[in-house]
Design a protein around this nucleic acid. Structure first.
Lengths: 74, 74
DNA sequence: TTGTGACTCTTAGTCCGTG
DNA sequence: TCACGGACTAAGAGTCACA
């Protein structure tokens, strides 16, 4: 499994547990809407600082977005 | 704690448990020695794919390099 | 054995628009 | 509400000479 794909899946999963649109997550994280889209589709290769910003916005530990297991973002 | 600093500390810690020099890790990961140096000092902002290559070379799960806790690398 | 500034090339990340 | 492409600016990837 490509790590980018894994990150994308995790971001999307946690985002949906929040009931957020991509645009809402973009607003919360300070990143751009189309960039969030690219990350979730696994076509972008985010840096660790972006990973952190995403994790902060989603209120989960950064490692959650790298893991295969169940995200703790209930 | 800056996430880049945290990654650097973790890379360095795991590398040393392997008894490897930066040059050895550079060889194992296919990255440049000076680039490893920059990451360990927290002056570089690696992407998730680089994080994965490092984790692979060090034989630890990628999330290990983001965590604050004790690395599981040996 | 590692730190560092500077460099080239590629890509991260933004913004606009279409379907 | 989201996927996707083009164009753009800032920054990361990757390398070297020197200390």
């Amino acid at each position: 499994m490509d790590i980018r794909k894994q990150v994308g899946l995790n971001v999307q999963r946690v985002r949906r547990t929040r009931g957020w649109s991509q645009e809402e997550l973009a607003f919360q994280s300070g990143l751009h809407r189309t960039y969030i889209s690219g990350i979730e589709r696994g076509t972008r290769n985010p840096t660790v600082t972006v990973l952190k910003e995403l994790a902060d916005a989603l209120a989960v530990p950064p490692r959650t977005l790298l893991d295969l297991g169940s995200p703790s973002g209930g």
